[in-house]
Each structure stands twice: as structure tokens, then as C-alpha cells.
């Protein structure tokens, strides 16, 4: 630990960021100290601006600086198709594919009794309201392929089906560009289960 209090404070702040250990935190702090004043100000300002200007879209609950967000406003997108994801970062990942042309709905979590997360802690009522308004033909579940994500998808599917909307789930299987022999057994057996006729 450094004996200069402001440095310690800065290191401590960096350490609280995800994926940052004590060494990285110290490195970042010293980088900032060595950089010129403008650079430090730009960083501080960017953080504040993002915090002030970005909020949640009132429709899909993704991060946005306009309401509704760019995606929800877009005429070019298919408004009858909604993809349900757990986190805003999942939207960013799906958007990178440029494959999906519908809208999103961000739940902000997944069901987990252990973590104390129930249906009321997710943006679920909002999703039901959105679908209930009509005009939605299909809801695609793209929650994480783990125990909690699956449970969330199943729970939502049960709620949506009575509304007469088609509910689908993205497929699980082998990563593209990977080797079959390195895939783990669970993924492989899942890929087998979801095989397609050619």
C-alpha cells in the first residue's frame, strides 16, 4: 500500500470495478497520475456524463440517452419480434451480430431464489404489458444457458403462452470455428439433441 492517501483512495476505487485486482488497480492509478490533467478530466467527465445522461428505455429497459431508445424508435426494425435478454450487455452482444432485426427486452437479472431474485425483481410485468398491448407475434428467449437462465426462460414462456404469442428459445450447441474434440460433453450432447436435417 502506498502512504499517499489520495493514491490509496484512487486505487481503492479502481479495485471495486469488476475484473480489477490489486495489481491492475495500482497500475491504472499510476497511469492516471502520470497522464496530463486534460486526460484525467476527460475520464472523470466521461464517467459523470454517462451517469447523468444515460437512463433506461421505458419500453425495453436497455441503457439509452433518448426515450424510447434508438432501437425501439427505429422504423427499420421488426416491432412484432421481441428478444428477451438478462442484461444490457447481452443486447450489445446480439447487436454485434447484425442478425437480429427485432426489438429487445432487458430483464435485468434472472430468477434465483438463492440470490433472493424473484419475478418482481425483474422487468417481467413490463414485458407482459408490452406483449399484452398486441402487435407482437414472437418472443425469443435469449437468457443465459445456465440453471437460472433456463428457469427464467421457462417461467416467462408459461406466462406468455396464454397471450397467444409464439415463444421460442435460441439454440444451444457448438461454437463456430471450434474443434469438436474440445467441446465439453454437456454442450456436445445438447448439440446432438438439437441436430438438424440437412
Amino acid at each position: 500500500m502506498n502512504h499517499v492517501a489520495p493514491i490509496n483512495k484512487l486505487v481503492d476505487q479502481f479495485r471495486r470495478l469488476p475484473g480489477i485486482g490489486p495489481k491492475s488497480a495500482t497500475r491504472l492509478a499510476y497511469f492516471i497520475l502520470k497522464a496530463d490533467r486534460e486526460r484525467a478530466e476527460a475520464l472523470a467527465q466521461a464517467i459523470l456524463n454517462a451517469k447523468e445522461q444515460v437512463g433506461f428505455c421505458s419500453q425495453c429497459f436497455n441503457f439509452t440517452d433518448t426515450d424510447p431508445c434508438q432501437i425501439c424508435q427505429s422504423e427499420a426494425r421488426d416491432h412484432s419480434l421481441i428478444c428477451v435478454v438478462e442484461e444490457p450487455s447481452d443486447v450489445a452482444a446480439l447487436e454485434r451480430t447484425r442478425e437480429f432485426k427485432g426489438l429487445y427486452h432487458v430483464l435485468h437479472g434472472a430468477l434465483s431464489p438463492l440470490a433472493g431474485i424473484g419475478p418482481d425483481d425483474l422487468k417481467l410485468k413490463e414485458l407482459l404489458k408490452r406483449v399484452g398491448k398486441g402487435g407482437v407475434a414472437e418472443v425469443v428467449m435469449a437468457t443465459n444457458p445456465n440453471v437460472e437462465g433456463e428457469a427464467t426462460a421457462m417461467y416467462i414462456a408459461r406466462l406468455l403462452k396464454p397471450l397467444g404469442v409464439k415463444v421460442t428459445k435460441i439454440a444451444r450447441g457448438l461454437p463456430v470455428g471450434g474443434d469438436l474434440e474440445y467441446a465439453d460433453e454437456v454442450t456436445l450432447s445438447e448439440a446432438f439433441e438439437n441436430r438438424r436435417e440437412m
Binding site: 430468477l111 424473484g118 419475478p119 440453471v147 433456463e150 428457469a151 427464467t152 421457462m154 417461467y155 408459461r158
Partner: peptide, 12 residues
Amino acid sequence: AGPELLDAWDEQ
């Protein structure tokens, strides 16, 4: 919590 939540877990 409501008992209907159990379905989502039992199905897996």
C-alpha cells in the same frame, strides 16, 4: 413467493 414459480425449476 408463489408456488407457480416451482414449475420453472421442476421442468429442468
